[in-house]
Amino acid sequence: MVPISHMLFISTALFFIGMYGLFTRRNMIAVLMSIELMLNSVNINFVVFNKYLYPASLDGLFFTIFIITIAAAEVAVAIAIVINLYRSHMSVDVNAAEELKY
């Protein structure tokens, strides 16, 4: 059986890859994709801990399903925001929308 540390390594790697993308990407869509990566790393964490530490219960799996559902809804809202932003600014660059600075 694959040891738990391997699994956690994958999830941590995914999380930081997502974070790197969140910090560095200028494209709004890419930023969204990075957020999805971070969410999924969390999902992996839930599944892994459930499987390895409490094999008798299903709490972690249910949590994961909830997160996937909410992520789908969140993406729908986020895409709508991006589309509106594109219509008003003719760009999906995050730096293009900075009217709310001091």
């Binding site: 910090f23 600075k101 001091y102």
Partner: peptide, 17 residues
């Protein structure tokens, strides 16, 4: 302190993180 309010989302994310 007004420089904190840069308008750049990624900057805010940094602070949040």
């Amino acid at each position: 302190i007004k420089g904190l309010q840069s308008g750049s989302i990624q900057h805010y994310v940094w602070i949040f993180f």
